[in-house]
Design a protein around this nucleic acid. Structure first.
Lengths: 305, 305
DNA sequence: TCACCTTTGAAAGATATTTTCAACCGGGTT
DNA sequence: AACCCGGTTGAAAATATCTTTCAAAGGTGA
């Protein structure tokens, strides 16, 4: 599956009911300027845009019909007509559930209570977006591969390395052979050992972190089943991925680095992967979980009161 | 609001959000035979009809385009196009109505899509609980201490160690001196160096992990400001904590270890702490964040497409 | 600067929707 | 029964909307 470029994601989800705002955010970086203007308008006011014709929306955004159609395509619809229908559906949706008013960015002078509320809300949003945007077919395939893998190598650097470690820890707990690699050199060194029947998982929000791409490429070339967990489903890392799991991207602000929401999103994906694997290996996973719990008991003071 | 069914929708003429089936029934007598066929199809399967063009619907009902348009007009829309948009909205609505049963535990035989939904829902719940249960006064105090600390030491083992590392990474990014300790011996060794003006943070879900409590005790004795992030505000660790930040605990199931939801909760707390500190040190934090972003740019492949 | 690739919108081409209009139907009248 | 007439219907023209094409504009690296 060596797809690249724009055509790749036109193939996947034909319809896309909700989670449009999330999709817009994920795809925004791969859009051209004028397409971003259109996407922004659409995400900002679905109801309003649903009432517009191609020409209308083109005028509103100061672009051309062609650009509007292109944007619709990029978002996964066959054409503008279908995007418009989806927007109408979305509008009806929002109508029912009025959003709370903590959506604003976190400001420097926000009282601490607001920070808590906004952050919690944002992360909840990120979770919802991620769940909506996750391709369950890809996830299922990744789960199947991991559940039967001889060994699982995980690559991630920076903030993503923690996510990788988390996954490795959990998989190890249910008796699988899983390792997380942070050092790029060691990662490549290890990747060389992989072959068919092994699984390599790369975690990178940007989709273009060389330190993570390189070991994945090696694993891919060696015949291992490769999985990319990334916020950029069109990024270069997907070249070497048999299965791509997309994380969502929340808008970031000055005080809220992208790493924060991408981490939340990545963790959800990783958890889903883990649970999926645990389901498939239930016979061995359940006792292993119990055993590891037992083994740690003595590390706690006897009676917590 | 006393009106019931039939009377209600005569009032709202221009749009007609729901109650389409009812409208069809009321207006049916005043329709001609072929129009009734169209109206019937529309009321029977809004979603399906939304996918059809005028011609398609005309064929389906064995009538002509003109009749379809007439029917749309009779139902109160300017034309078929608008009826179609309304249908799409209606369909989306119905869809959302059915799916409230994700609250159950994750079972071994749940399809992967359910796993995603349940997990996302659970984590969202955990976030809400955590935000609600977080003591902003304690948080504010912890933030104040951390923002002005000479150095910050963080203790966590197991799953919590990742949370500790995450916090340390982020604090370091905004120019603070923060370290996460995983090795209990090294943690204690380092804790001995602390004194008044330093901050020590212990992260333990159980509130009774000796490997984490011990360094915190040492730091406490040495006069450092100590913070405990724990799910058990009555646990032994709080003895040595000047400020206690409580994380929430979601119910766990066989397949979903406690570590999973506690991690989500801990991360939110840690994020709040971080943002709070970033706010208070904004002058230095903002440029530091920008600088660390710059420094990493070359680790990505130049042009993602 | 130039060559090359990307992005963009004007306009042509294709579809879908709306309107027009004549044929058709059914019932009442001579 | 034959005829007329208002209402109903669909084929086809007219219009609006959407899609595609293509060349010019804009940017980037050598």
């Amino acid at each position: 599956m060596t797809h690249d470029l724009k055509e790749s994601f036109n193939a996947d989800s034909p319809p896309a009911p909700a989670a449009l705002a999330a999709k817009v955010r994920t795809l925004a970086p791969s859009m051209t300027r004028s397409m971003q203007r259109v996407a922004e308008a659409v995400a900002g006011d679905p109801a309003g845009c649903a009432a517009l014709t191609v020409t209308g929306l083109a005028e509103l955004t100061g672009t051309s019909e062609a650009t509007v159609v292109r944007t619709a395509r990029l978002l996964g619809y066959p054409g503008y007509r279908d995007l418009r229908l989806a927007l109408a559906g979305l509008a009806a949706h929002q109508q029912s559930g009025r959003a709370p008013s903590v959506t604003a960015d976190i400001a420097v002078d926000d009282p601490i209570a607001d920070v808590v509320a906004k952050l919690a809300y944002d992360e909840q949003q990120t979770l919802a977006d991620t769940a909506a945007g996750l391709d369950t077919v890809q996830l299922g395939a990744a789960v199947a591969a991991a559940a039967t893998a001889r060994r699982i190598d995980i690559y991630g650097v920076g903030a993503s390395s923690l996510v990788g470690q988390d996954l490795a820890q959990k998989l190890a707990r249910i008796g699988l052979i899983a390792h997380s690699h942070t050092d790029p050199h060691l990662a490549v060194t290890n990747a060389v050992q992989l072959r068919s029947g092994d699984v390599a998982i790369a975690i990178t929000h940007s989709g273009s972190t060389v330190d993570v791409m390189e070991p994945l490429r090696v694993a891919f070339d060696r015949g291992a089943t490769t999985v990319a967990i990334t916020g950029r489903p069109d990024g270069p890392v997907t070249q070497y991925a048999d299965h791509v799991l997309t994380t969502s991207t929340a808008r970031e602000s000055e005080l809220r680095p992208a790493a924060m929401s991408s981490r939340t999103s990545q963790l959800l994906v990783v958890d889903c992967l883990f649970i999926g694997v645990a389901q498939r290996t239930y016979e061995t996973a359940a006792p292993a979980l119990a055993a590891s719990y037992e083994a740690l008991a003595h590390r706690h003071t006897p009676r917590p009161r």
